[in-house]
């Protein structure tokens, strides 16, 4: 199995001197294609910081980051166009879906494809296919405010997957859903990750969905617990 995420000795600190806060310390992590892993830990343990580093949103203070076989950070950014990198390789799923309120469900999905340079017709086809697949095709022309929580999250998943990213980062993807819908969403994510040879890294506090992950990683005070907990 190909490694899609490789973090070696990644550290991150904020501030210096007496105000220095070490958010991450010497984190080593490898996630392979098809894997669905969870980052667990109390508030302030560094989960979101780690997600931001994998998502090329913030630079690490030290260490090396390789995404989909491409070294993107090694003490400094190795790519200039990080947004293009995110657009091509990474899909994001947020706690509160973060759909753009002025675009309907279809256009929220199609936007990513348009930004990636696909024609309007191609974007439209792919958006329709994804929305149908996620069983929200009938709400394609609804505005985000008109969608239920579950529908909006499925549209957000469609957007995250639109450009066929190899890495999907999810921040509390089921926090706004009830347990039944949370299970459905996680099953769907697993299925899509497998189909697209992608991996998923999710930050979650939702114990009810722990069994949907291949591995659980615990973060405590910025240190990643390497005692991986394998789930069936």
């Amino acid at each position: 199995m190909q490694s899609l995420i490789e973090l070696s000795g990644v550290s991150k600190h904020f501030g210096d001197g007496p105000t220095r806060v070490d958010a991450l310390r010497d984190v080593n992590l490898t996630v392979r294609q098809g894997e669905v892993v969870a980052l667990l830990g109390p508030s302030g343990s560094g989960k979101t910081t780690l997600l931001n580093i994998i998502g090329c949103i913030v630079p690490a203070s030290a260490g090396r980051v390789v995404l989909d076989g491409e070294a993107v950070y090694d003490g400094r950014w190795l790519r200039r166009d990080l947004r293009r990198l995110r657009l091509d390789k990474i899909g994001f799923i947020f706690q509160f879906h973060n759909l753009l309120p002025f675009l309907n469900a279809h256009d929220n999905v199609a936007l990513v494809l348009t930004l990636a340079g696909q024609t309007a017709a191609e974007a439209q086809r792919r958006a329709d296919t994804l929305l149908d697949y996620l069983e929200v095709g009938h709400r394609a022309h609804s505005m985000p405010a008109q969608l239920s929580g579950g529908e909006a999250q499925r549209v957000a998943i469609a957007r995250a997957l639109a450009n066929r990213p190899r890495i999907i980062l999810a921040d509390e993807p089921t926090a706004a859903l009830d347990s039944k819908r949370a299970g459905i969403v996680m099953d769907l994510l697993r299925k899509l990750a497998a189909e697209q040879d992608a991996c998923i890294v999710a930050v979650t506090h939702d114990e009810k969905i722990y069994d949907r992950f291949d591995r659980l990683f615990h973060l405590r005070d910025g240190v990643l617990d390497n005692q991986e907990e394998f789930v069936t």
Binding site: G55, I57, R83, R84, R86, L87, D88, F92, F94, N98, L100, P101, F102, L111, V112, L115, A116, R159
Partner: peptide, 16 residues
């Protein structure tokens, strides 16, 4: 601002 942050996160260039 939050929508702009989302646009940046999903890869929208500055010109957009």
């Amino acid at each position: 601002l939050k929508q702009i942050a989302t646009l940046k996160l999903i890869g929208a260039p500055d010109r957009t």
